[in-house]
Design a protein around this nucleic acid. Structure first.
Lengths: 338, 338
DNA sequence: CTGAAAGCGCTAACAT
DNA sequence: ATGTTAGCGCTTTCAG
């Protein structure tokens, strides 16, 4: 019977109306007469009709989905953001496609591909490593930048990374640390730059000096945090406190120093960045800077949907505030406790 | 100039051939003459033509994407799985849509909606809480179950949860524990059931008894692990070892007991399940059961793509093996050490 | 308020 | 090897 899914034609036949009326009943119910509407609706129920979105999209010159372009899909940091996006896209009848930017060679070509493929009505870009101008393509859909970005004045939502880094340093300085180190993200990443410059500014504001041998290169991963810890352990003159540019690195760092017998926070204070869920349950619980990930996803999606609805390539930019979350991984330095 | 994106017609005109030839050149290059192929290709380059996938999909009666239905998108557990899926779907020219099942009321209605919406050529279901029969819908696309499932013999990929749980118990028993507790997942979840039954079987095999007051109800989250820990702490007669049905609960449990001054593993041994990245960096590093998440994603996608290509609703099922990962959170019980 | 009809851009027979 | 043609299922003028 209903082997094949019903089409709008089937519904029209059953309801004894034209396909146009069926279509109208479904999209703008107010313009059809009460009685016909009922007839159509019951025909829909009877046939089990579901609108074919591919056909609808073709006719309406849209795609019905949005792409989230993420530097590394395996990074759990993005899962909550996706959840936030999904919660606004679903009601807006938009599907959420996800893709990796850093897969394969030449991420920028990949980005260009997505932009021109016409697979999506809009795109949210979470990868700040693309060069400005990578978006200068004719006929591209609206794009929302969801990261720091070297490029121009595209619509964006971003977190105040520099300020977050500064808050971390300020807290460490306030409890008495004068020897403060930093574990950075990967080179060339905008987040790396911004958090590093916030770190340096925080130092300066407190009359402290940045020391090159106290800045450890990382890549946001736990393993890179652990590697930085090994370099810290090898130092003769160690900083007494450390600001890590991501919670993951802080976790790796803390685990590695603890395994080496160092006590946190008695021997070393650590501040992370992100406030991923797990850090509240560590021993000691990690002091960090919170990024509101769900909010980021929600607002990114909302701003993008606005642009799509308006058919505009431009739109507002927003900054979402970070928050300092004090926990147990920071204490005054030994000297200060005397 | 290229304000509007070029259509196949434009390419045909520029190349001086028919649209059919353009289409063929792009899909089956081998059937067109060398010279025409070159003409078409250069016309494509000149016009900047990109195939319109919506139109193509409509014509070919497919959608070009696959949906991953995830119980909770915010759960980082799935990010690596998505990455694995993406790595096989992208080369197969399939987009990856993601959606939550547990959003809103009535997840089964939501599932039915996705199945009948015709939005995807196939679907991977990661949610084992649906009732069997929820998939008995006419005209649905191929579905791959990627979880334990009460229902029938649908194609699936799953992890040997019961065996994993048994391995955990076996290890604890082997080092001398006789008082072994368990923190379960949420009621009604298949994973909960399977891991619980594996736990019980492990106990039995080692001549031990399950004690109702040593089984703590959780919901896989860190907070529920911490809550279970508080109940454990309140016990007069505590188990000396604990198998948690998820790493997250193990983390919550361990953090809470550590904050209460209990030492792991000296006072309490803990085994988790999943091997999420962070547990290797905890202090102590968590002994756990590894689920190969990338492999799960990859195989799930591969099996689904096979079904899609074959146009079949049926296909093989696979079990992927779990692995015991010994680390530092297990030690012999005090009594056994004398 | 409703119907007829013209495509959206593409692909797959079927011819040639 | 290439062109002609007929739609895929839907929405939207334009008439009535």
């Amino acid at each position: 019977m209903d082997r094949k899914t019903a089409t709008i034609q089937d519904v029209a036949r059953v309801a004894g109306v034209s396909t146009a009326t069926v279509s109208r009943t479904l999209s703008k119910p107010s313009v059809v007469a009460e009685s016909t509407r009922e007839a159509v609706l019951s025909a829909v129920a009877e046939t089990g009709y579901r609108i074919n979105s591919t056909a609808s999209n073709l006719r309406r010159q849209r795609t019905g989905s949005v792409i989230a372009l993420i530097p590394n899909l395996a990074n759990p940091f993005f899962s909550q953001i996706l959840a936030g996006m999904s919660s606004v896209l679903a009601p807006a009848q938009l599907g959420l496609l996800v893709a990796d930017t850093q897969t394969g060679t030449d991420p920028e070509a990949r980005l260009a591909d997505f932009l021109q493929s016409g697979q999506a009505d809009g795109l949210v870009l979470f990868d700040g490593t693309m060069s400005p101008g990578a978006l200068d393509l004719p006929g591209r859909p609206p794009v929302l930048m969801a990261c720091e970005w070297m490029g121009g004045d595209l619509p964006s939502i971003r977190v105040d990374n520099a300020r977050g880094a500064e808050m971390a340093v300020a807290h460490l300085a306030d409890v008495g640390h004068r020897a403060i180190g930093h574990v950075t993200g990967p080179p060339g990443n905008v987040l790396t730059e911004t958090r590093l410059s916030g770190f340096q500014r925080g130092l300066t504001r407190h009359g402290l000096q940045a020391r090159a041998d106290w800045v450890f290169g990382g890549d946001f991963s736990m393993d890179s945090g652990a590697a930085a810890a090994r370099r810290w352990l090898a130092l003769d003159d160690r900083p007494t406190a450390l600001f890590c540019a991501s919670d993951e690195m802080a976790i790796g760092f803390m685990g590695a120093v603890q395994h080496a017998g160092i006590r946190v926070p008695e021997d070393l204070s650590i501040v992370g960045f992100d406030n991923i869920d797990v850090v509240a349950h560590l021993t000691p619980a990690l002091t960090t800077i919170r990024q509101p990930r769900t909010v980021i996803g929600v607002r990114a999606a909302e701003l993008l949907v606005d642009m799509i609805d308006a058919g505009s390539l431009t739109g507002p930019s927003e900054v979402v505030e970070v928050e300092f979350i004090p926990r147990k991984s920071v204490a005054p330095p030994r000297a200060a406790r005397g």
